[in-house]
Write a protein that binds this DNA or RNA. Structure first.
Lengths: 329, 329
DNA sequence: ACTTCATTATGAAACGTTTCACACCGATCA
DNA sequence: TGATCGGTGTGAAACGTTTCATAATGAAGT
C-alpha cells in the first residue's frame, strides 16, 4: 500500500487478495462468501481503512447526511429539536448538517440551495416561507408547517392542544378565557392552536377573547392590552392561554407588574413544554410537545425507502403538564 | 444537455462553448478572461448549475464542511455556541456538521471517526476525553479544553473570570465567600475559575471556602452542605460563586428552601452568561462568556491556511453582568 | 461425460470534479 | 522577418467509490 495517505478500497482488495468489487460489497452489506468477507474485514482493519463518503456520495448519490434547517439553534424548543434529530439520525448511522436561517424567507431559500448542492439525502425544515421552492430531487419533511400536501408534515396535535388548554383552564375554575398569540403569519400548523381553543370554549359555552400579534410587533402591545383590561385591581380574564411558553413567560412578568398574582388571580398555560434551565421542571403550566417523537418520526419518514405513498400530515399527541402557573401546582 | 438530471460542468462548458477546465476555474475564482467568465456564468445560470460538492470533495480534498462535536445541543450554553458556530461558518461559505456525544468519552472518539470518514475540513470539539485520539490529518480546535499544546484551544479567560467574580462579590460587601463547582474531572480550562477565585480572595485577604463535586454526584450534596452551614437562620457565607449558571440556578432554589433571601442574605454569582428564556436578561448575576467571539475565533483558527505557527491557547475576555442575585440589581 | 443452470467473484466503466502539461496566440526584440 | 516569451484556454488523467456485464465455478440433470 502507498504510504502517507489514507488507504483505499484498492489497497484493501490487494491486501486481502480479492477484487475491488468484492470489497465494495462487503462494505455495502451485499452478500459475499463468508471466507471472502472475513479476508476483507481483516485486511481493512489491518490497514485502518475507512470508506470515503465523498467518493461514495459521488457515485451512489447516497451520502448518509441529512440537513436540518431551523430559524435558530438557541431557542430552547429548537435546541431540543436539533438535539433529538441529531440523535435520531445517529441511531441510523447518519450525520446532521445544520443550517440556521433567522426565520428569513430568503435565507431559507438560500439554505436549501446550499444543502442541495451538498447532495444531502434529505432535508428536515422548520421554515417560515410558504412559497419555498423545494427541489423535487431531495426528500423533504416539514416540521410544524403544513404548506403543501405533497410535502409530508410532522406536527404536534395543535388543534387538540388548543382544546386541552381551554379545557384544563375551565376545569381549574376559569370562566373568562383569553388567547394570546404571537408569531409570523405562516399558514402552518401552529395556527390550529387557536382553532382548538375556540372550539373547546364554544363547546363549553365559555366566554373567550383572542389577541394575535406578529413577531415584528413585539410583546409591548400585549402589555398595553392587559393594562387596559384591568379594572379595580382585577383583570377581565381569569385564564390565559399563550401560544408559546416564551410568550407565557413574558405574560407572567407583565401580570406581576400589574400587581396580579399567578395563579391565584390569573392562571396561565403555555405551549411547547420547554424545560427550565435546570431541566427539573417547566417554565409554566403548558401543553407539552413530544419533541423526541417529532424528531424520530420526521427522520423515519425522511429516510423511508418507498416514497410512493407518504402521509401528508402526521399529528403527534400532546399532553398537559402543570408548571406553577395554574392552581393544580 | 441531458434532461431529468442535474447539469454538470460538462453541460455548462458545452452551453458556453468553452473548455471544461475554464468552467472549473470560474467556479474556483482562478483568473479567467472577462468574456469567458461572463459566458460561463450566463450558461450556468441558464442551466441552473450548482457545483457538486461531493465530486469536489473527492478530487480536491476540500469539502467546505466543518464538524462541531458537543456534549449536547439543548443546554443553553452549548445551544448558543452551536448557533454562533453555524453562523460563523455560514459567513465563510461553509456548512456545519453537528454531532452530540452525551459527554461520553467513547462516543466522542466514535464521533471523531465518523466525521473523519466524512472528510470534513476541520473539527471543533468541546469534549471530555483527555485521551482523545485526534487524527493528525484533520485540523482540530478545542473549545474550553486545554489538553495538549499541539491542539489549539480557544477559551474564555477562566482565571480572570474567577478573579472578577470574587472581586465583584467583595465590592458588593461580601466578607465570607464560597466557591461551588460541579462538573467532570477534566483538566481543561474551566478549572481555572477556581484558581482565579482563590487568588483574588488571597490577594484581598478574604475568608473563603471551596466545595467541588463531580457531575455524577448530582446537586444533592450541595444542599446538605448548605443546610449544615446555616446557624440561627444565617448562612456562614454571604457570597457564593458557582462555576456555572446552571448550578447558580439550583443554588438559588436551595437557598430559598432554607429561608434565605437572595441577594439580601446571600449574593450569588454564576458563570457562563446564559440568557434567560425570554432573552431579556440573565438567570443570575454572572460572568459572561463571549460566546460569539469564541465561535468566531475557533472557526478562523480552524480555517487558517498557514498551520505552521498556530497559537496553542487563546483566552477571550469575560465580563460581569448583574442579574438580580447580587445587590447591584 | 457433457450440457445447463444458478451462484458468485471479477474488473472496467462511470460518477463530476480539479489539476496540470500542453498548445495556442499576440507581443516584444534582435 | 523570425525567434522568444508570458499569458491564457484546453482537455486528458486522476480522485475512490458503485455498478453491471462478464467470467468462473460447482452442482444437477441427461
Amino acid at each position: 500500500m502507498r504510504r502517507g495517505t489514507m488507504p483505499t478500497m484498492k489497497d484493501v482488495a490487494q491486501e486481502a487478495g480479492v477484487a475491488l468489487g468484492t470489497v465494495s460489497k462487503v462494505f455495502n452489506d451485499i452478500p459475499v462468501g463468508e471466507d471472502y468477507r472475513r479476508r476483507v474485514l481483516d485486511a481493512a482493519r489491518k490497514l485502518g481503512y475507512q470508506v470515503n463518503s465523498y467518493a461514495r456520495g459521488l457515485k451512489a448519490g447516497k451520502t448518509g447526511t441529512v440537513a436540518l434547517i431551523l430559524p435558530n439553534a438557541y431557542d430552547p424548543y429548537f435546541a431540543a429539536l436539533a438535539d433529538s434529530v441529531c440523535q435520531a439520525l445517529a441511531r441510523r448511522g447518519c450525520r446532521m448538517l445544520m443550517a440556521v436561517t433567522g426565520s428569513d424567507p430568503d435565507a431559507e431559500q438560500q439554505c436549501i440551495r446550499m444543502v442541495e448542492q451538498n447532495k444531502v439525502d434529505g432535508i428536515i425544515g422548520l421554515t417560515y416561507n410558504p412559497a419555498l421552492e423545494i427541489p423535487a430531487s431531495i426528500p423533504f419533511v416539514s416540521i410544524d408547517r403544513y404548506f403543501n400536501p405533497a410535502v409530508p408534515c410532522v406536527a404536534s396535535d395543535n388543534f387538540g392542544g388548543g382544546q386541552l388548554a381551554a379545557e384544563k383552564l375551565a376545569e381549574l375554575g376559569c370562566r373568562r378565557l383569553l388567547f394570546l398569540r404571537i408569531g409570523a403569519d405562516v399558514p402552518g400548523e401552529p395556527d390550529k392552536r387557536m382553532g382548538g381553543f375556540q372550539a373547546a370554549c364554544q363547546a363549553r359555552g365559555l366566554e373567550h377573547a383572542v389577541m394575535a400579534l406578529n413577531d415584528r410587533d413585539g410583546y409591548e402591545p400585549f402589555r398595553v392590552f392587559l393594562r387596559s383590561h384591568v379594572e379595580g385591581g382585577r383583570l377581565s380574564y381569569d385564564g390565559i392561554f399563550c401560544n408559546t411558553d416564551r410568550l407565557a413567560f413574558y405574560v407572567q412578568n407583565m401580570l406581576a407588574e400589574l400587581g396580579l398574582r399567578v395563579p391565584e388571580d390569573v392562571q396561565v398555560v403555555g405551549f411547547d413544554g420547554v424545560r427550565r434551565f435546570g431541566n427539573d421542571g417547566y417554565y409554566c403550566s403548558t401543553i407539552v410537545q413530544p419533541v423526541g417523537q417529532l424528531a424520530e418520526t420526521s427522520v423515519s419518514i425522511l429516510l423511508e425507502e418507498d416514497r410512493s405513498a407518504l402521509p401528508s400530515l402526521i399529528c403527534l399527541p400532546v399532553s398537559y403538564a402543570p408548571g406553577g402557573t395554574t392552581m393544580d401546582g
